[in-house]
Structures are given as structure tokens and as C-alpha cells.
Write a protein that binds this DNA or RNA. Structure first.
Lengths: 151, 151
DNA sequence: CCCCTTGGGTTCGGATTCCGAACCCTAGCT
DNA sequence: AGCTAGGGTTCGGAATCCGAACCCAAGGGG
């Protein structure tokens, strides 16, 4: 396997990585998937500073991962909800959690569990070949540089 | 869906998130999966400063995701290679790339492609129920707090 | 009518982290 | 004897982070 130099601005892994690799962003998304929607709730549930929270919510909205939506309580308030684009990050979060369960689980066990809503089954994340259906590991995959490779 | 407050130190999502959510770490892992092994190669391929690279390689070794191994060139040099624990991060990276392909692909298309080594098929990442086999989205999943939940 | 509370922010200064450039060390090569 | 290559460490300035304090508008209570 020869090392491959890729142009980061064209790499569909480094682009999302730059986004999610910012501090707090992954935790914020976890909370969003757990159902948190309001500024105040994010703030108290995550112990994040308000200024950083404002900034992170802002970039996620700019990126189209969250949508800022007015709603009426007693007067107009705002909610941050996952968009379709945001909801599709679910496999990333689940893959991360699966790995965390396996390799970083604290002695007391994880703090929450997830199951299939209708049948109660365990949840799995699988990398597989769309052609032959085989389950794949890193070693079963061939990487083909398309442009800008200078080994 | 009531908001759930979880203890971060016990959350098997936030633990890995804290690690991978550090700047450079995801890119470093991408390079590792692309076959990069030596300090110098990481440095020139990623345009990361040497001091930060030292530090990141260090934490990944401490965490058992990379292994620092001596080898003989003309004299003793070191390689950083993925451990089993590191290799199992593959689904995370693939899920991220899949999402990047779909939502952040630059106009010119991605900079590299991946395929099943033996049959050439496309690669998919799927979240599914281990019980009934159904493919799942965020909405099909029930979250059960085990401890420390104070809605 | 005035003050208090609530949600959703903004501003500020100090503490951390990042990062580039320069330096270090050891073996082998010429 | 000096040069190079690999793999680092050190340093100081620049960019981020973060907590605490502040702001503001609309109800509600007295």
C-alpha cells in the first residue's frame, strides 16, 4: 500500500472531518439526536459556554445540518432541529458509539442503550460490498486515487 | 423524545468523540488507513506542524489505536501502524466518507474512490437491526438511559 | 406601572492550544 | 570532516476557548 497524498479540499473524508473535528460539534450532534432542540437545553445538558454554543449552532445551521425554526411558546422562541442532511449523519454517530462500546466502555457500562424501536433488537453498523454483499474490513478495500495523487 | 442528559464520562459516544474530535486526529487516521506509517510521511502529506504531529501520534499510541514499532532501514527507524483497535475505526471513517460523498462533494468530484478489492463493487455503510435485519434510521431507534438521566 | 423572570444571545479578558521556524541528535555516506 | 535523513524538541506569537457578566424583549405579578 503506497502512501497517497490527497488534496484535502477535494477529499470527501477530510471535508466532513474538518467540520465534526471541531470541539463540541460531535457532542452537540449527539444531543440533537437525543432530542435536544433549544439553546438553553443544549447549554445546560452539555456544560458548554454560551458563546461557543452560539458559534457551533451557527456553523451547523450554515452547513445545513441543523435548521433554526421559530415556534410559539408563550412568545416566539427558536428550535434547532436536524435537517435531512443532519439526520443522515446517524451512521457516523452509531459507528462511533459501537466502537466506543467495544473499546472505551467504562467499567460501569455505558450510560444509555439503543434498540430497534419495533422489535427491540440490537443495532449494528456494517461496512459491506454493494455488489457481492460481503462484509468488509479495511483490508478488503482498494483505494483508487482519481486526481492529484503524488505518492 | 424527551431530552436526555447523559454523563459524558460514561457515554460511549462522547469518549471516542473527545478523541477524534481533536484537530488533525481524523485526518491522521485517514492517512494511516491510506497506508502512511512514518513520521516524515505524515508530516509532508498532511502539512501538519511537527510538534502537533508528535503530540497526536503520542495520544493515539497511548490510546492503543496506533502502535509504534521499530524497523530496520539502514538503521533503526520507527513506524506507526494501526492496531486492531485502530483498524476497527474503519466503519467510522467510511460512514464519514459516505456522508461527505453525498453532501459535501466538490464540483470536481471526490479525490479518490474505494471499491471491494476482489469484486470491484461499491462500498456501503448500513445501520441495521441485528434481530430482524431491517435497515434503520435515527427515527427507528429507541434510546434507553441506564443511569444518570435527569430529563 | 414597575420589577422580575425566561429564552436567547453578545462582549470581554484571561487561559489554552496551535503552529511555523529553528534547533538537536545519531548513524551512515563520501 | 562535513552532509544528509529520520525523528524529534523548544520557543514565542497567533488563533481559540471559555466563564462570567452583560443585554434585550415580552409576559406576569403585585
Amino acid at each position: 500500500m503506497a502512501p497517497v497524498k490527497v488534496a484535502d479540499e477535494l477529499c470527501t473524508l477530510s471535508l466532513p472531518a474538518a467540520l465534526l473535528g471541531e470541539r463540541w460539534t460531535l457532542l452537540l450532534l449527539r444531543q440533537a439526536f437525543l432530542g435536544t432542540r433549544r439553546f438553553e437545553d443544549f447549554q445546560t445538558e452539555m456544560d458548554i459556554s454560551r458563546s461557543v454554543l452560539t458559534e457551533r449552532l451557527g456553523t451547523l445551521v450554515e452547513e445545513g445540518i441543523l435548521r433554526r425554526e421559530a415556534y410559539k411558546d408563550v412568545r416566539t422562541r427558536y428550535e434547532y432541529r436536524l435537517t435531512e442532511k443532519g439526520l443522515e449523519l446517524y451512521p457516523v454517530l452509531m459507528a462511533l458509539r459501537k466502537w466506543g462500546d467495544r473499546w472505551m466502555s467504562p467499567a460501569e457500562g455505558p450510560s444509555f442503550d439503543v434498540h430497534h424501536r419495533t422489535c427491540g433488537g440490537d443495532i449494528g453498523v456494517h461496512v459491506s460490498c454493494e455488489g457481492c454483499g460481503a462484509e468488509l474490513t479495511a483490508r478488503d478495500v482498494r483505494v483508487t486515487p482519481l486526481r492529484d495523487s503524488r505518492a
